[in-house]
Computed example of a mutant assay.
Amino acid sequence: MSLTFAISTYLVIWWIVLFAMLPIGVRTQAEEGEVTPGTAESAPHRPRLLPKMLATTVVASLVFAAVYVIIVHRVITLDQIPFLPRYETVH
């Protein structure tokens, strides 16, 4: 696995995990009873982005470690995935 491929894979995993973690534990302004004028009632009251970004980094690192082991040690190869088409090499 090249360094460029590893970095790009990690960044994609990080963003996916971030978007999965953003709604966890968020309460809206309407639920808190403190709606700031000029904002929607459904806007988050306290989004707590820094702790979520730190948790995202930890989770994304674990997921990337698993993906790295699978790719480098060939735990699963493309030939083992049944729905991928099979191509013959041309000589």
Rank of each mutant, 00 (worst) to 15 (best):
P47F: 00
V63G: 01
F5I: 05
P47G: 05
S61W: 04
Y10G: 03
V75C: 01
L78F: 07
E88Y: 10
V63W: 02
L49G: 06
P37M: 04
S42V: 06
V59M: 14
A60H: 02
I16W: 11
I71S: 05
E34F: 09
F64N: 04
S8C: 15
S42Y: 11
T36V: 15
V17W: 00
V26S: 00
T9W: 02
E31A: 05
Q29A: 05
T57D: 05
T89P: 01
G38I: 12
F64V: 10
P44G: 10
P44T: 04
A40C: 05
Q29S: 03
Y68S: 08
A20Q: 09
P51T: 13
V75Q: 04
L11H: 09
M53H: 06
A60V: 10
P44W: 02
R46N: 15
P44N: 06
P47I: 04
M53C: 14
F64D: 04
V90R: 13
Q29M: 04
P85Q: 11
I13D: 00
Q80E: 14
L18K: 01
I16T: 13
T57I: 09
E31R: 00
T28F: 00
P85K: 03
H73Y: 10
I16Y: 03
H73F: 11
R86D: 09
A66T: 08
H45F: 15
L3C: 06
Q80L: 06
V26L: 13
G25T: 01
T89C: 09
L78I: 07
P44K: 04
F83S: 15
V63F: 08
V26T: 10
I24T: 10
G33S: 03
P85C: 07
M53G: 08
V58G: 13
V58I: 15
P51G: 09
R86T: 11
P23W: 06
L62K: 05
H91G: 13
A55I: 07
I70M: 07
L62R: 13
H45C: 05
